[in-house]
Computed example of a mutant assay.
Amino acid sequence: MSAPPTGATDTATPGDAAVRAELSRLRDSIDNIDAAVVHMLAERFKCTQRVGRLKADHKLPPADPAREARQIARLRELAESAKLDPGFAEKLLNFIIAEVIRHHEQIADDVVANGGGTP
């Protein structure tokens, strides 16, 4: 079964006002959670940018495979206890880690390009 086309809306019979109201309430909750996730990711990336700068200033490598492995194991455990698919949680963290490493590499390149000064 395929998903409805983008922009399609759910339709309920005219007597299903309660269904539409519940659907709206649930979607409002989802929208709020999505906003919180975005804000949490923004805060996380602010911290990882500072880590990247510290690593660049001290000529440390952008990636830390041992820490990444510990974080993945930790997140998988958290996911299991939260009844979330650990495989999904791992994929999400791997995506975030890849982006963090990309940022760290860019910061290191900027530090080198600026002769070690603040980019």
Rank of each mutant, 00 (worst) to 15 (best):
A3F: 02
P4I: 00
T6S: 05
A8M: 08
T13W: 15
G15Y: 01
D16V: 02
V19I: 00
V19Y: 00
E22I: 12
S24P: 02
S24R: 11
R25K: 14
I30N: 01
N32Q: 15
A35M: 03
V37K: 10
V37I: 15
H39I: 07
M40A: 14
L41E: 12
A42P: 01
E43K: 15
R44V: 13
T48Q: 10
Q49F: 10
L54F: 08
K55V: 12
A56R: 08
A56G: 09
D57E: 10
D57L: 13
H58N: 11
P61K: 03
P61R: 02
P65T: 00
A66G: 01
A66Q: 02
R67S: 09
E68I: 07
E68Y: 07
Q71A: 06
R74C: 15
L75D: 05
R76I: 02
R76H: 05
R76D: 01
A79T: 11
A79Q: 06
E80Q: 15
A82C: 13
L84T: 15
L84S: 12
D85E: 11
F88H: 10
L93N: 07
L93E: 08
F95Y: 13
I97N: 11
E99L: 09
E99I: 03
V100T: 13
I101P: 03
I101H: 06
H104F: 04
E105S: 04
I107E: 10
I107N: 05
A108D: 02
A108N: 06
D110S: 11
V112C: 01
A113C: 07
G115Q: 02
G116T: 07
G116I: 05
G117A: 12
